[in-house]
Amino acid sequence: MDVNGAAAIISGGASGLGEATARALAAAGATVVIADVNEERGKALADELGGVFAKTDVRDEAQVQAAVDAAVATGKPLRVVVNSAGIGWATRTVARDGSPHPLEPYKTVIDINLIGTFNLMRIGAAAIAKTEPVDEDGQRGVVINTASVAALEGQTGQIAYSASKGGIVGMTIPAARDLAAIGVRVNTICPGIIDTPIYGQGEMAEEFKKKLVAPVVFPKRMGQAAEFAHLVKALIENDYMNAETIRFDGGIRFQPK
Rank of each mutant, 00 (worst) to 15 (best):
G5P: 04
A6S: 09
S11R: 03
G12R: 02
G13W: 01
L17M: 07
G18H: 00
E19L: 05
T21G: 01
A24V: 00
A27E: 11
G29Y: 05
A30V: 02
V33A: 01
A35W: 06
A35E: 01
V37Y: 05
E40A: 14
R41Y: 02
G42H: 09
G42Y: 07
K43P: 00
A46V: 03
E48W: 02
L49S: 02
V52S: 06
R59A: 04
A62Q: 12
Q63D: 04
Q65T: 10
V68M: 06
A70G: 12
A71C: 06
V72C: 05
G75Q: 08
K76N: 07
P77M: 04
R79Q: 11
R79N: 01
V82N: 00
G86N: 03
G86K: 02
A90G: 12
T91K: 13
T93Q: 10
D97Q: 13
S99A: 14
P102E: 11
Y106G: 03
Y106S: 03
V109E: 05
V109I: 10
D111I: 05
N113S: 12
I115F: 15
F118Q: 14
L120A: 13
L120W: 03
I123E: 13
T131W: 00
P133S: 10
P133Y: 04
V134E: 03
V134Y: 06
D135N: 14
D135H: 09
E136N: 14
E136Y: 06
G138P: 05
Q139G: 15
G141D: 08
V143Q: 04
I144T: 01
T146F: 03
A147K: 02
S148P: 05
V149C: 10
A150C: 13
L152E: 08
L152Q: 14
E153N: 15
Q158L: 11
Y161L: 06
Y161E: 01
K165A: 06
G167M: 11
I168Q: 04
G170V: 07
G170F: 13
P174Q: 14
P174S: 13
A175V: 12
R177P: 13
R177Y: 09
A180G: 07
A181L: 14
T188Q: 02
T188N: 09
I189E: 01
C190D: 05
C190K: 01
C190S: 12
P191Q: 11
P197S: 10
Y199C: 05
Y199E: 07
Y199V: 14
E206N: 09
E207P: 07
E207T: 11
F208M: 15
F208S: 12
K210M: 15
K210Q: 13
V213R: 11
V213K: 10
V216T: 10
V217L: 15
V217I: 15
F218V: 13
K220I: 11
R221H: 09
R221M: 12
A226N: 12
A226C: 03
E227M: 08
L231N: 08
V232N: 01
A234V: 13
I236R: 03
M241I: 10
N242I: 07
A243Q: 09
R247Y: 07
G250D: 12
Q255P: 05
K257T: 13
K257G: 15
